Structures are given as C-alpha cells and as structure tokens.
Amino acid sequence: MRTPKYWRQLLAIALWAVLLPAPVYAIAASTDAPASLRSEADDSAALDQRAVDRELALFRGSAISLRQAMAIAEAQHAGSTTADVSFDGAAASPVYRVKTLHNDRVWQHAIDATTGKIVGGAAASPLDEFDADDRSNLATLKAIQHRLADAVRVAEHAASGKAISGGLIRERGRLNFAIVVMSGNDLKEVILEPPGAASRR
C-alpha cells in the first residue's frame, strides 16, 4: 500500500532529481569510489526517477480522483471514514488503496483508478491487531468531527492541484492529516491539524 511515507519518499526523490541533476556527477567524480560504483549509483537514481515519472504519469491519466475513490470505499460500509488512501501505479492496473475505519475494524479496499470499480474483495482487520500508536490515532480519528476527505479538499485548494495520497501522522504528540498533492509537475505535502485533535492527545 502506498502510504504517506511512501509518497514523502517519492517527493524527496522528485525534488532531489529536480534540484540536483548536474551536481550528482560532480559529487560522484570527487569521491574515491570506482567508476563502476559511480555508474551503478547513477543508474539507480535514473531508475528511481523513471519509476517516479511513470507513477505520476499514470496518476495524471486516471479518470477517478482520490476523493472519488474515498467516497466509493466509504460507501461500502455506512458510517465508515477513511484513515489512509494512496494511488498505486505499480499494480497491474492503477488503483487507489483505501483503508476505512468502521465498527472497530480497518477495511482495505482497492479502487480501480480508471473505472472506479472495487478490485477484489475487501479485507478487514480488527483494531486489536494494530499497535498502541495506531489504535490511538484511529481512536482520535473516530472522535473528531473533520474527516480525511475534508483535509484532502482543503489541501487540493491550498496547493492548487490533485491529491495523490493522504493519511494520519503523529508529530510531536499531535495527530495531523498529511496530504501529498500534485500541482503541475510538482509534489507538495500539506499538513493539517484537525480541529479538536490536539485536545485528544
């Protein structure tokens, strides 16, 4: 599943590739590493960038938005809310992987990014299978009024783009929504603290 951490890594790779295309060779040339190792490092960076470019191209071409995928998954269980969602272009057909919370279970859905149809069946895990931090985050998510869908809408407006992933992160004791948005050719991360989350730490 493509987590916010995965998209943060892609964001870092994309920014590294944009900001440091020329100096990479200068840095490698100034080391004592054999030419074969420098070549392998350059090939690895090129492969990483190609993977990023392919994933983003598939996302740009998807007919279904991340918000639509969330709505489709949430409609499977009345009253459910999305805890994590991400675009996955590595699958045979691009999908959104959506985790929803309903009745003390976390449901995992794959939504086809072209048709909006659910791919395969839904898998459910009881909350007691998660570690204490995850259970705490999910309990806070259940208790607050705002939803990940609200955060995605705000992030897309703020970053002028389309969200590619979203989920929960806890930093310095605060539970936040982390949304990665594609704006033009750039990936931007938007961090939003849900109202009421700080009081439930």
Rank of each mutant, 00 (worst) to 15 (best):
residue 1 M to T: 06
residue 2 R to T: 08
residue 2 R to W: 11
residue 3 T to R: 15
residue 4 P to F: 15
residue 9 Q to M: 08
residue 9 Q to F: 12
residue 11 L to K: 09
residue 16 W to Y: 12
residue 18 V to T: 15
residue 19 L to Q: 14
residue 24 V to E: 02
residue 25 Y to L: 05
residue 25 Y to S: 04
residue 28 A to P: 01
residue 29 A to I: 09
residue 31 T to A: 04
residue 31 T to R: 14
residue 32 D to P: 03
residue 32 D to T: 13
residue 33 A to N: 13
residue 34 P to G: 13
residue 36 S to T: 13
residue 36 S to I: 15
residue 36 S to N: 11
residue 36 S to V: 15
residue 36 S to D: 09
residue 37 L to Y: 15
residue 43 D to Q: 15
residue 45 A to N: 03
residue 45 A to K: 08
residue 46 A to D: 12
residue 46 A to R: 11
residue 47 L to D: 03
residue 52 V to H: 10
residue 55 E to F: 10
residue 55 E to P: 00
residue 59 F to W: 07
residue 59 F to Q: 03
residue 60 R to E: 06
residue 62 S to F: 03
residue 62 S to W: 02
residue 63 A to W: 12
residue 70 M to D: 08
residue 72 I to L: 05
residue 73 A to R: 12
residue 73 A to G: 02
residue 73 A to L: 10
residue 74 E to V: 10
residue 75 A to Q: 13
residue 77 H to A: 12
residue 79 G to Q: 09
residue 79 G to P: 02
residue 81 T to I: 14
residue 84 D to H: 14
residue 85 V to N: 11
residue 85 V to C: 10
residue 87 F to P: 02
residue 88 D to N: 15
residue 89 G to M: 08
residue 91 A to P: 02
residue 93 S to A: 05
residue 97 R to N: 06
residue 97 R to A: 11
residue 101 L to F: 04
residue 103 N to P: 00
residue 104 D to Q: 13
residue 106 V to H: 05
residue 108 Q to Y: 12
residue 111 I to A: 04
residue 114 T to V: 05
residue 115 T to W: 02
residue 115 T to Y: 04
residue 117 K to E: 14
residue 118 I to H: 05
residue 118 I to M: 09
residue 120 G to A: 04
residue 121 G to P: 00
residue 121 G to D: 10
residue 122 A to E: 07
residue 124 A to R: 13
residue 125 S to L: 12
residue 128 D to E: 13
residue 129 E to P: 00
residue 129 E to F: 12
residue 130 F to M: 08
residue 133 D to I: 14
residue 135 R to D: 03
residue 136 S to F: 11
residue 136 S to Y: 11
residue 139 A to Y: 11
residue 139 A to P: 01
residue 139 A to L: 09
residue 140 T to F: 00
residue 140 T to D: 03
residue 140 T to G: 01
residue 145 Q to Y: 04
residue 145 Q to F: 01
residue 146 H to S: 06
residue 146 H to Q: 10
residue 148 L to E: 06
residue 151 A to T: 07
residue 156 E to T: 09
residue 163 A to K: 12
residue 163 A to W: 09
residue 164 I to K: 06
residue 169 I to M: 07
residue 169 I to Y: 10
residue 172 R to M: 02
residue 173 G to C: 04
residue 174 R to A: 06
residue 174 R to W: 03
residue 176 N to E: 05
residue 176 N to R: 15
residue 177 F to I: 02
residue 180 V to H: 10
residue 181 V to C: 04
residue 183 S to F: 14
residue 183 S to R: 10
residue 188 K to A: 02
residue 189 E to F: 03
residue 189 E to A: 04
residue 191 I to F: 07
residue 194 P to T: 03
residue 194 P to N: 03
residue 195 P to H: 11
residue 196 G to H: 10
residue 197 A to G: 04
residue 198 A to G: 01
